[in-house]
Design a protein around this nucleic acid. Structure first.
Length: 571
RNA sequence: CGGGCUGUAGCGCAGAUGGUAGCGCGCAUCGUUCGGGACGAUGAGGUCGCGGGUUCAAAUCCCGCCAGCCCGACCA
């Protein structure tokens, strides 16, 4: 490819604060361009990288035994109604109507479509197991698309679905996909953490996220130093220390409490640590029911866990008026008197003589003890892990931020039972499929690679996904004779590489200065830069510079072919 | 959905107290340059986000809407 023919240009001035470095470099380098918030064009340069990432994924998925196919983009809305996901995933489901009024969802994930397809076939146990996958544009009506490719409203996703006779068989594939994903990310130059995580609106019982550490990531995980435990903050479980086991239990008393409504206000008033306080929060579930949630004052509520405990999809905090109408007072809520459903965190058992509000404005209850002074309807783990806490086996947690580039889900019979998708067992019994699903976001993975592989001048693409392997630069000569000579030499190199199927980009622009060409080469980040100029010609050499290295050196033209093969073989 | 900020040439921006729009980059043409984003000259390019109002006069003041960016959407 000649640069002068390439559609898409580098930009000297960086686009308005792009949020993160990968977006800035990708736009500046002419890889992508924004259409509207959260929707991007991939330009020819970006498309090449995108394609290469897809090829690596495809190769590994095929090697793992999965079969590629494609589903329609528009999903009949009835299918989503079968699984009741029009409401559960409705907040981010895009809908369209055709002229007859038939409603469709723009696919954001394809479990329903795939199950609908599979159930049309009346399969038997002899046909199982199998894994099918696709690459397709996914649509998510995100409330807020964040700058860049990391959180978008439309993106290419590889999604795979596996069908099994039972859990034992499924687990083999889950492990197979786990290992396949690790191979894929490794090839892409990414070191992915595998974290236990929440399945959100997908359904099922357990799942894992593949997370690449990065400070621009939105996923927070808690892990142990040795990596024996890695879990997304939504699901991470910690063990709570017993705080004051030797203290004697005292009589409860109600006292005037001239304080504000926050935990800190209580700490300031009593000069007692936050863990001595009971944090009580009133929630309203999506079914309109009120729930009181109580936990130790130094801990935070994990709403994902809480939703699972309550069996609801979303929660909102009760308003001040609602709190008063239930018989309490904002800032002084306690689990002592309210006659509504109460959920208590296990941490309530770790403290003797709590203090807490008394459901009356500026009155507190002191020396409150769980079991004696109040009980809850349900004890559960509903706390967010706090740094410094330990795992069940006593290991310290460390916190990591990262980008979720892929995930694998156990779906079990969640979809097959709701959609009555069955196969025939040995002996003729109809049984629901046991399923799993597995996703990788291509654009997000691409951006993640840029987040990891760049310097102050631009991108440094790993060879396997670089848009081109070689960036040939020709500089102008003083005389037209030299000029013609440079041109002729470059032409030979260019054709030779094309003949050997080495992707080469030749910056053949005449009117552009050397500095600009070098700056563009650094920005675009092609692994190997070759320069042919008056200077190199005198020595019958070519200048060789790898994007990842600082030094340049001259190699004889005659050695180019061999050096290049050596370079490429070290992928 | 709440809060803050922004919207002027393809991009980045400037336009005080209202007087009819400018700079840099980029683009085009010519010349000089030619190994780290060169220089000179000339030129093209704008219903100042959209709608309404005030005014002799609005990019500028007022109202409404739209779009974008950032933060939050969580504890009482």
């Amino acid at each position: 490819m000649k640069y002068s023919r390439l559609f898409g240009k580098t930009i000297k001035e960086s686009p308005r604060e792009a949020g993160n470095i990968s977006t800035k470099l990708l736009i500046q380098g002419g890889f992508i361009r924004e259409s509207v918030a959260g929707r991007y064009y991939f330009l020819p340069l970006g498309m090449r990288v995108h394609d290469k990432i897809m090829q690596i994924i495809e190769k590994e998925m095929d090697a793992a035994g999965a079969q590629k196919m494609i589903t329609p983009t528009l999903h009949p809305l009835e299918l989503w109604q079968e699984t009741n996901r029009t409401s559960s995933a409705g907040f981010e489901l895009m809908k369209v109507k055709d002229r007859r009024g038939a409603e469709f969802a723009l696919g954001g994930t394809a479990e329903e479509m795939i199950v609908d397809l599979v159930r049309k076939f009346n399969l038997s146990y002899r046909d199982l197991p199998f894994t099918i996958y696709q690459f397709s544009q996914k649509f998510r009506d995100e409330l807020r698309a964040r700058g860049g490719l990391l959180r978008v409203r439309e993106f290419m996703m590889k999604d795979a679905y596996s069908f099994h006779r039972d859990e034992v068989d499924f687990k083999k594939e889950y492990e197979n996909m786990w290992q396949t994903y690790l191979r894929i990310f490794k090839q892409l130059g990414l070191n992915a953490l595998v974290a236990e995580s929440d399945n959100g609106y997908i359904g099922g019982e357990y799942c894992h996220e593949f997370i690449v550490e990065s400070e621009v990531g939105e996923s927070r995980v808690f892990a142990t130093e040795d990596g024996s435990y890695v879990a997304h903050e939504d699901v991470a479980v910690s063990c709570h220390d017993i705080m004051n086991p030797d203290e004697s239990i005292k009589e409860m008393e109600i006292k005037e409490a001239p304080r504000g409504p926050t935990i800190q206000d209580g700490v300031d008033l009593y000069k007692q640590p936050a863990w001595r306080q009971i944090k009580s929060v009133l929630y309203k579930t999506d079914q309109g029911k009120f729930v009181l949630v109580a936990l130790r004052g130094d801990l935070e509520i994990n709403e994902v866990k809480l939703c699972h405990v309550l069996g609801c999809l979303s929660l909102e905090g009760a308003t001040e008026d609602e709190i008063r109408s239930l018989g309490s007072e904002p800032g002084f809520i306690s689990p002592l008197k309210l006659k509504i459903k109460k959920v208590g965190d296990f941490s309530l058992k770790t403290v003797r003589n709590f203090y807490t509000g008394a459901d009356i404005f500026q009155k507190d209850a002191l020396n409150v003890n769980y079991g004696r002074d109040f009980t809850v309807d349900k004890e559960a783990d509903i706390a967010l892990v706090k740094l410094g806490q330990k795992t069940k086996d006593g290991k310290i947690f460390v916190e990591k931020l990262g980008i979720e580039v892929g995930n694998i889900f156990q779906l079990g019979k969640h979809y097959s039972s709701r959609m009555h998708a069955t196969f025939t067992q040995e002996g003729g019994k109809e049984t629901f499929y046991y399923m799993g699903c597995y996703g990788i976001g291509v654009g997000r993975t691409l951006a993640t690679i840029v987040e990891k592989y760049h310097d102050e001048r631009g991108i440094i693409w790993p060879k396997v996904i670089a848009p081109f392997m070689v960036h040939l630069i020709t500089l102008s000569g003083k005389t037209s004779e030299i000029q013609a000579n440079i041109q002729a030499n470059a032409q030979v190199v260019y054709e030779q590489m094309q003949a050997e199927q080495i992707d080469i980009l030749w910056d053949d622009r005449h009117e552009v200065s050397a500095g600009e060409k070098f700056a563009d080469a650094d920005l675009i980040g092609i692994p190997l830069r070759l320069v042919i100029s008056e200077r190199t010609l005198q020595d019958h050499a070519i200048e060789w510079k790898e994007r990842s290295q600082k030094e340049t050196h001259m190699i004889p033209v005659a050695d180019l072919k061999e050096s290049l093969h050596l370079f490429i073989s070290h992928l």
